[in-house]
Simulated scan of single mutants.
Amino acid sequence: MRGLVSWRLSVSFDSRICSAANKSQVVDYFLWRQADAARCALNGWSYWMLRKNGETGENAAVILEKQSVAFKNELLFQNGINFNELPAWQRRGTGLYWEKYDKPGYNPIEGKEVVAVRRRLKVDEDLPVKDEYKEFINQFLNVGD
């Protein structure tokens, strides 16, 4: 089809630098960031639902101001969206981190198959929550101990 361009664009970026005195503060910071991501996601979904239903940006913001999580969930539910059933990355964000993996190879000097440990960037769209998330973050902090 001439002139038809098909593409998908999804861009979001939120990056911060923080100073933490110990590992516990790092874990607390990541727990807070995950909770903040969930709060922002619910607010965003609610805001854009109101906009889709004809509210102006200003009115949508006023309607949502100081409203409870239950109110926002109900607003979405009444419009056919169960927030808790959305993909995890849409509710909690995405994690990017290095992961190690084994890469098979061949050592021509020794004439044998070898395995090299490499690393690659992992895009994790299904991050755990609560205590599992604490353990998940701690695994990165305990490297080299």
Rank of each mutant, 00 (worst) to 15 (best):
E85D: 06
C18F: 10
I63Y: 07
K100N: 13
F30Q: 07
A116S: 15
K72D: 01
N22Q: 12
G44F: 00
D102W: 15
V69Q: 01
V117S: 15
Q34C: 03
L42N: 00
W89P: 05
V62A: 10
S46L: 00
Q90W: 03
L42A: 04
E113T: 14
E85Y: 02
D145K: 13
S68F: 04
K134N: 12
I63L: 10
G95H: 11
V11I: 10
G105T: 08
A70V: 00
G44D: 01
R92W: 02
G105P: 07
M49C: 05
V26R: 11
L75K: 04
A41L: 02
Y106I: 08
D102Q: 15
G144C: 12
F71M: 04
D124Y: 08
S10V: 05
L141D: 07
N84D: 00
G57W: 02
E132S: 08
Q139P: 14
N59P: 02
L9W: 01
G54V: 09
L75R: 03
N53A: 01
A21W: 09
I63W: 06
N107Q: 09
I137Q: 08
W89Y: 06
L42W: 01
K134G: 11
K122F: 12
P128F: 10
D124F: 09
T94N: 03
D145E: 13
M1Q: 06
S6R: 07
V123F: 11
R120M: 11
V129H: 09
K52A: 09
L31N: 09
T94Y: 03
D102N: 15
M49L: 01
R119L: 14
D102E: 15
A41F: 08
N138V: 13
A116T: 15
W45Y: 11
F30R: 05
M1P: 10
R120F: 09
G44T: 02
D28K: 13
I81F: 08
D126H: 09
P87I: 02
W32H: 14
I63Q: 10
F140G: 08
E125M: 07
Q67A: 01
K134D: 11
P108F: 12
V62W: 06
R119I: 13
S24Q: 10
G3N: 05
A70K: 00
E99G: 13
E55Q: 06
T56K: 04
A38H: 00
Y133M: 05
D28Y: 08
Q139L: 13
R2W: 00
A60E: 03
G105Q: 07
I63T: 09
V27A: 13
V115P: 10
G44W: 03
A41D: 07
W32N: 14
G93D: 01
G3H: 01
S15T: 05
Q25T: 09
R39Y: 07
K100R: 12
V62K: 10
V114D: 14
R8P: 06
E132V: 03
S12F: 06
R16I: 05
G95S: 15
K122Q: 08
V115G: 11
A61R: 00
N53Y: 01
Q67C: 04
N82V: 04
K72C: 01
L96F: 13
L121I: 10
A41Q: 05
P87V: 05
L4K: 08
